[in-house]
Amino acid sequence: MSAINRFHEVANDALVQISDHLVPEAKLTLAIYVPGEPEQDIVLMGPGAAADEVVNTLRRRGGLSLDGSNIYKRMVCDSIIGAMAMGKQNSGPAPDGHWAKEFWEIGRAEGQQRDELVAALEHLVAVTTPDANGQLGAKEEHLASLEHARAMIRLHRG
């Protein structure tokens, strides 16, 4: 019997022994890891144990608050930021039913709002810019507002 198989057998026997002493509604999970070697991770879950509840327990009792630093939370946040950025650019939508779709749609709504604002500013500039003969009689403050609108258009059109 290999050392790994023997370990699993011993761990499983220990889980059974511990389970015999738990209150009836308690669930048991054993997690073993070697830092920096995720291929050696072992998670043994007793009957009826739910992964979400294990994570909730670690969050409550193991210091995994939303304010703490951990790689899983960082990866989730990076995925959300990426989905929102892709949505704003209207590219690479998350598939229907995927958890990131909601964030992609938030980003897309922001992108559409930006596009509508820029289009409105472009229209405003087009209809209020004096022609070569200065036919609109624009005042200096109007020209400053138009220049500001042009700067905003350049900024948001990239």
Rank of each mutant, 00 (worst) to 15 (best):
residue 1 M to Y: 12
residue 3 A to F: 12
residue 8 H to N: 14
residue 11 A to S: 04
residue 13 D to M: 08
residue 15 L to D: 10
residue 15 L to H: 02
residue 21 H to T: 14
residue 22 L to K: 08
residue 23 V to C: 15
residue 26 A to R: 03
residue 29 T to V: 03
residue 32 I to K: 02
residue 33 Y to R: 09
residue 34 V to A: 11
residue 36 G to D: 00
residue 38 P to A: 12
residue 39 E to Y: 04
residue 39 E to A: 13
residue 41 D to F: 00
residue 48 G to P: 01
residue 48 G to A: 05
residue 48 G to Q: 01
residue 49 A to S: 00
residue 49 A to P: 05
residue 50 A to Q: 03
residue 54 V to N: 01
residue 54 V to F: 01
residue 55 V to E: 07
residue 55 V to Q: 00
residue 58 L to E: 09
residue 59 R to F: 08
residue 62 G to K: 04
residue 63 G to T: 03
residue 66 L to N: 14
residue 67 D to L: 06
residue 67 D to S: 08
residue 68 G to S: 10
residue 69 S to D: 12
residue 69 S to M: 10
residue 71 I to W: 08
residue 72 Y to C: 14
residue 73 K to T: 15
residue 75 M to Q: 13
residue 75 M to K: 13
residue 76 V to I: 11
residue 78 D to C: 11
residue 79 S to Q: 14
residue 82 G to L: 10
residue 82 G to T: 15
residue 82 G to H: 09
residue 84 M to D: 11
residue 84 M to R: 00
residue 86 M to P: 07
residue 86 M to W: 09
residue 88 K to M: 02
residue 89 Q to A: 09
residue 90 N to E: 11
residue 91 S to Y: 02
residue 94 A to C: 09
residue 96 D to H: 09
residue 97 G to N: 08
residue 98 H to W: 08
residue 100 A to E: 15
residue 100 A to F: 05
residue 101 K to S: 13
residue 101 K to L: 14
residue 102 E to G: 14
residue 103 F to Y: 11
residue 106 I to H: 09
residue 110 E to W: 02
residue 111 G to S: 01
residue 116 E to G: 12
residue 119 A to K: 01
residue 119 A to Q: 03
residue 122 E to Q: 03
residue 123 H to D: 14
residue 123 H to S: 12
residue 127 V to I: 14
residue 128 T to I: 07
residue 129 T to A: 09
residue 129 T to P: 04
residue 132 A to R: 03
residue 135 Q to K: 03
residue 136 L to G: 13
residue 137 G to S: 04
residue 138 A to F: 07
residue 138 A to N: 06
residue 139 K to Y: 12
residue 141 E to T: 05
residue 142 H to R: 10
residue 142 H to M: 10
residue 143 L to E: 10
residue 143 L to W: 02
residue 143 L to D: 14
residue 144 A to C: 10
residue 145 S to F: 08
residue 145 S to W: 06
residue 146 L to S: 07
residue 147 E to R: 01
residue 150 R to L: 09
residue 152 M to I: 06
residue 153 I to Q: 01
residue 153 I to H: 02
residue 156 H to G: 05
